[in-house]
Design a protein around this nucleic acid. Structure first.
Lengths: 140, 140
DNA sequence: CTTCGTGCAAACTATTTGCAGCTTG
DNA sequence: CAAGCTGCAAATAGTTTGCACGAAG
């Protein structure tokens, strides 16, 4: 399946980057690569514990930090929530958070990105990164 | 001065809202109303300690929570930073954060706001609130 | 075989809370 | 006075770190 294939490519890239692929990291990578939601460290720990019993939460945190450093995952910090993660092999997008259900919806607007870059430029800056979150409620 | 005037109006409104204006709250209100930056709880505690020696950090946190609840201040949570506050008697705006200096620059784009609302609407949502931050670096 | 990763427990940071006494309205 | 505050110390939540042992390349 596509997930396994993608995971294989990732582990190879990471290995040649000098980071060791242990059982715990392999499990976390697999889970992250095949997840389409935005789990936090505790949730990832829960999901990985089936595969790696006894897995420590600190290993999860350390792995997440390493993967983020190597550009494999992205970290998101939504309002008053724990850090959530998603794999980085997806096109850039922003998030809407349904304030009632907690659901996270991805979206993208090239027009807004252009306007952001233009605004920054006008003020003498270049954008290093940005973050846009819409906290929304379903229309009745 | 304008600051004092504004502060007076605020305290009256709060008082009639049933919240007591103590020495510590008066000091914090005055400081927040006359600050044009985005201090965090610890910084506000430092600034208010001149006026109210012995002021406790928990009182600062409790006061900030109360003021936010009453719409007097706004709380911002920038990337990997503590919560920062600013008075709410300013038109809506978003923030650019200079990643080198930490400086916070306010800006506003009606066009972007329109696009955000439109995007949400298209997906069947109304925007409750939003957050847009541009992490920027000065152009050389 | 050596370097790097792991689990565990303890540390940390930002923030919140319980409680008994003190203020404000 | 009575309801709200306050300071203090202790609790919390999420995350990070030191250490001795174990596993990966």
């Amino acid at each position: 399946m596509a997930g396994a294939h993608r995971t294989k490519r990732l582990t190879d890239a990471l290995r040649s980057d000098g980071i060791r692929i242990t059982r715990q990291r392999a499990a976390l990578l697999e889970i992250i690569a095949t997840s389409d939601d935005h789990p936090d460290a505790v949730e990832l720990h829960r999901r990985a514990s089936d595969e790696v019993p006894g897995l420590s939460i600190s290993t999860v945190y350390r792995t997440l930090a390493a993967l983020e450093e190597h550009g494999v995952i992205q970290r998101h910090q939504f309002q008053g929530d724990t850090a959530r993660f998603e794999h980085a092999d997806t096109a850039h997008h922003d998030h809407m958070i349904d304030v009632d259900s907690g659901e996270v919806i991805e979206f993208r607007s090239d027009r807004i990105e252009e306007l952001q870059a233009e605004l920054a430029r006008e003020m003498g800056y270049d954008i290093v990164s940005h973050r846009m979150e819409l906290y929304v409620r379903k229309r009745d």
